[in-house]
């Protein structure tokens, strides 16, 4: 085992996959000489050279489209969004080509491309640099969407994403890069896409969450357990496809659901999950599912306002008690 930061785990995942498969490459802004704005691609340029670790001009639309052309013709590109928000400029290529091209080509072409990078609220980066794009892309057919909360999952899921033959969006969080965890050394550590992780078993209710909110939920769960509650906590890890099996199995046991997410409440992932609960396990529910999500506002710069934008531990405690008591 080796103690690693989230960003190091990501780097190792990319490194290992580049060693394993010569068709795997990285492209994006400052991924080469500079090593990535969060050092996820540090020194890969020295190891693999400029053809495989390609510093691109600041041209998100076209380098994303270029990655599509590469992916259609045998290369397996990993795009780094210096900030995931910037990839709004590449929405068309990611959605039209990454998501839909395999279908519109009648299955003739695949677009095995990973789109990864930082996003999320918490560093007072202002509205444009604090985006959560998962819901924006959620409805696009063909895409897979991952949002890992821990170094271990970051590594295992990124390796799966790189090997996947679909376009995979991989959302990292600015506040997680310096999170540390023990990572198995010298093994091909893989976490399958589409499998959630039950972090705590419990009987009172099911908390569904992902990415940084997993850590808020872990704090809340600790307090709740001390106070005599028995919550079940599930880290979704993969947002699309959702692990509906684990979700339904859990709800069948607990009959109550709290969803904690950092994306906008309106049109968010939580709303979609509630719809799925209605469709798949309505009869198991003893109370209407509750969602805690970001306020429907552009993320403000001011620190206190920023914190008030997203769910905090106290909100989670209150929501759980309201649901269970």
């Amino acid at each position: 085992m080796v103690m690693q930061y989230y960003f190091e785990a990501l780097r190792d995942a990319i490194y290992e996959e580049m060693v394993r498969d010569p068709m795997v490459m990285v492209m994006g802004e400052d991924v080469g000489h500079y090593g990535g704005s969060y050092k996820v691609t540090k020194d890969l340029f020295k190891e693999f050279g400029g053809l495989r670790v390609l510093d691109t001009p600041i041209a998100e639309n076209s380098f994303a489209g270029m990655a599509v052309g590469c992916a259609m013709t045998g290369v397996r590109p990993i795009i780094e969004g210096m900030n995931m928000g910037f990839l709004l400029l590449a929405f068309s290529q990611i959605a039209n080509n990454g998501g839909m091209l395999r279908y519109t080509s009648g299955g003739q072409f695949t677009v095995p491309m990973v789109v990864r990078g930082p996003g999320g609220v918490g560093r007072q980066l202002g509205a444009e640099h604090s985006q959560r794009l998962e819901a924006y892309f959620y409805g696009v057919p063909g895409l897979k969407i991952i949002a890992p909360a821990t170094p271990l999952d970051a590594k295992g899921l990124l390796k799966s994403a790189i090997r996947d033959n679909n376009t995979v969006l991989f959302f990292e969080h600015v506040l997680l890069y310096n999170l540390k965890e023990e990572i198995p050394d010298g093994v091909d550590y893989i976490v399958p896409i589409g499998k959630a992780n039950r972090l705590r078993e419990g009987q009172d209710l099911t908390i569904l969450t992902y990415s940084r909110q997993v850590h808020h939920c872990l704090s809340a769960v600790k307090t709740l357990v001390n106070e005599g509650y028995d919550p079940e906590l599930i880290d979704l890890r993969t947002l699309k496809p959702l692990d509906l099996e684990m979700i339904c199995e859990s709800v069948h046991k607990t009959h109550r659901v709290l969803i904690v997410e950092e994306d906008y409440k309106t049109g968010g992932i939580g709303g979609e999950i509630i719809a799925l609960l209605n469709e798949h396990c309505f009869d198991d529910l003893d109370a209407p599912p509750v969602r805690l999500a970001s306020r429907d506002i552009p993320t403000p710069y001011n620190g206190r306002m920023e914190a008030a934008t997203i769910p905090q531990v106290a909100d989670i405690l209150q929501a759980v008690k309201h649901l269970v008591d």
Binding site: R52, G65, G69, C70, M72, L101, F109
Partner: peptide, 25 residues
């Protein structure tokens, strides 16, 4: 034949990627 692209200019980066891919491979 890498496709018809229905948005104006959408195919330009894709074709550029195919050229990059040829160089890469």
């Amino acid at each position: 034949f890498l496709g018809g692209y229905a948005f104006v200019a959408e195919g330009i980066p894709v074709a550029t990627g195919a050229a990059y891919s040829a160089k890469y491979r």
